[in-house]
Nucleic acid binder design. Structure first.
Length: 553
RNA sequence: UGGCCUAUAGUAUAAUGGUAGUACGACAGAUUUUGGUUCUGUUUGUCGAGGUUCGAAUCCUCGUAGGCCAACCA
């Protein structure tokens, strides 16, 4: 048997906790804020949370961290649910931090009664000023010592809408001199006269993240609350609140978020790309969102495999986007049906093949999967082939078509180039060949060995489709770390549209989302923009192209 | 100039005081009716200086480098 796979640091923590008898079973949660679409970075978190629970016989809740009504929306709730499902995970309960607003209000009262929270009338500027700096202690203000009764009354009035936005806040009373800025009397509740996507106009005060997240974890008896590194300094406050409130002791653990080359990974930045028209929407196939990957033809399996391979640790990382591409190729290679498509066509005429004759040639759908079966491909004397498969003056190690050279037409015959014609502009207009009748695929008695095999589509039977080729959205490896605005590094050539590619006839029956390998070209999937009379294919990812590398030498 | 987190091939990630391994990449070759896939081989690493120890990537000390923290965002 193979060796046991080593545990990541989160699995180690869970195993230790279970062995120590700390918990009977574990509970995790995935806690998105519904203010944007999920991206590949969230996939890492989803796989971690659901994966951990799965592995150790626990459950995972989907909980929306909806404590800021001005940025949140049900559109995002719906997309997030769809994306988590698509990735292949089932949550135990669908929950919302807003489900707990009443409970949270009680918790706040509890703290006030214990003398651990107070209402502050300072403006946000004053509060920032009094907070000090990382190297300078903050100052306590006069509101800090209000009586419990006064705090209770004021907080109630806040809830009842007696004050305007920003007039008052509720703060924890901890330590204005703490070296941890988050312990310098953090704000617990603020006033927002805003309509909430779920609670409507019931509330005008809303809890801050720090007074909602840990409490929600605790209410749900989350045993292991996993979040990203930037929340490390919040942990002290997370623990403080749980201790003072004397509620279920959820524990927070932090991991390093995913960063990937040639992409940005913040909802704020992605929103800018959408709003400022750099892309067509959250699901533009160039975006790193899950909805975009889905539309582009990525499979959930490949994304889960990617998350598995990148591992998890506490150090900052920048993952090569090539690894994601490797994962999707690996999966698509196994499942994608092979089809022949010519993107930049040039006419090829087989001079010794009877004009008007058509043959049906059997072609396997996927050499990696016998059960995928085969289809019949029409063949005739006039074909379309790829312009780049012919070279008037062949390069070194070139084994495609050139004057006098032989290649095999995939699933058909070996041909020999006898002549070519150019148009007035000097472009190759037509290539003439002779075919070897005995070289038919599957019944080759010619004894001829050729090095090159090229794809083709019979001209009489050809159909047309639009093909969208995508390149990376950014020109630099790490746009977020470059000088100036990240949008200055957007790749202007990230989308190339081929209006009329030549496709083999069987593709007419493709359904949106269907995945194909266009032989020698890459993996493609039928886009949702397709209509009855117009097929649109997205290139998911190219094939590995060692010739491209070789020819650059 | 406070506090916290982190440091292993190009990129990630193992080794839990006892032979520094794996994947992706790169390079070379074999196979191939996709210059795809598959297979084989090669390449490159413990941030630095001290210390503890028979033995240190691992423990300790001091540096160095990077990241995070001063939103009524999450």
């Amino acid at each position: 048997m193979s060796e046991e796979k080593s545990l990541n640091f989160l699995e180690e923590i869970v195993e230790e906790d279970i062995e120590a008898g700390k918990y009977k079973s574990i509970m995790t949660r995935f806690p998105p804020e519904p203010n944007g679409y999920l991206h590949i970075g969230h996939a890492k978190s989803i796989c971690l949370n659901f994966g951990l629970a799965n592995k150790y016989g626990g459950k995972t809740n989907l909980r929306f961290d909806d404590t800021n009504p001005v940025t949140e929306d049900t559109e995002y709730v719906d997309s997030i649910k769809a994306d988590v499902k698509w990735l292949g995970f089932d949550w135990e309960h669908e929950l919302y931090a807003s489900d707990y607003f009443d409970k949270l209000y009680e918790y706040a009262i509890n703290l006030i009664k214990k003398g651990l929270a107070y209402v502050d009338d300072s403006s946000s500027e004053e509060i920032a000023m009094q907070k000090g700096t990382p190297t300078e202690a903050g100052k306590e203000n006069k509101y800090r010592n209000r009586s419990t009764d006064e705090n209770l009354k004021l907080f109630e009035e806040m809830r009842d809408g007696k004050y305007q936005d920003g007039e008052k806040v509720l703060r924890a009373k901890i330590d204005m001199a703490s070296p941890n800025m988050h312990m310098r009397d953090p704000i617990l509740y603020r006033i927002k006269h805003a309509h909430h996507h779920r609670t409507g106009d019931k509330w005008v005060i809303y809890p801050m993240y720090d007074f909602a997240h840990g409490q929600s974890d605790s209410i749900e008896h989350i045993t292991h609350s996993i979040c990203t590194l930037e929340f490390v300094p919040h942990r002290q406050l997370y623990d403080w609140l749980i201790e003072k409130l004397d509620i279920f002791p959820s524990k927070q653990y932090e991991f390093a978020r995913l960063n990937m080359t040639y992409t940005v990974m913040s909802k704020r930045k992605l929103l800018q790309l959408v709003n400022e028209g750099y892309v067509s929407g959250w699901d533009d196939p160039r975006m790193p969102t899950l909805s975009a990957y889905r539309r582009r033809g990525y499979t959930p399996d490949s994304i889960r495999e990617f998350c598995e391979r990148i591992g998890v640790q506490k150090r900052e990382n920048l993952i090569d986007v090539g690894l994601l591409e490797y994962c999707v190729r690996e999966h698509l290679n196994k499942i994608a049906l092979r089809r022949m498509v010519v993107m930049d066509p040039v006419k090829l005429i087989i001079t010794n093949y009877p004009s008007g004759k058509t043959e049906e040639l059997p072609s396997e759908n996927n050499p990696e999967d016998e059960t995928a079966g085969s289809r019949m491909l029409p063949f005739s004397a006039e074909l379309w082939i790829e312009r780049e498969d012919f070279m008037e003056v062949p390069a070194k190690k070139w084994f495609r078509l050139a004057p006098g050279s032989m290649v095999r037409l995939k699933n058909a015959y070996i041909i020999k180039c006898t002549e070519f014609k150019k148009d007035s502009a000097g472009n190759i207009a037509e290539i003439h060949c002779e075919y070897i009748p005995e070289s038919k695929s599957g019944a080759d008695t010619s004894g001829i060995n050729v090095k090159g095999t090229i794809h083709w589509v019979s001209a009489d039977h050809a159909l047309k489709a639009e093909i969208r080729l995508y390149d990376r959205l950014f020109k630099v490896e790490n746009p977020a770390s470059e000088e100036g605005d990240f949008k200055d590094y957007v790749n202007a050539d990230s989308l190339h549209i081929i209006k009329e590619a030549i496709i083999e006839p069987s593709l007419i029956s493709a359904k949106a989302g269907d995945k194909f390998q266009f032989i020698r070209k890459g993996y493609f999937c039928l886009d949702t923009d397709s209509t009855e009379d117009k097929l649109v294919f997205n290139r998911t990812v190219t094939l590995k192209d060692t010739w491209a590398k070789e020819s650059k030498k």
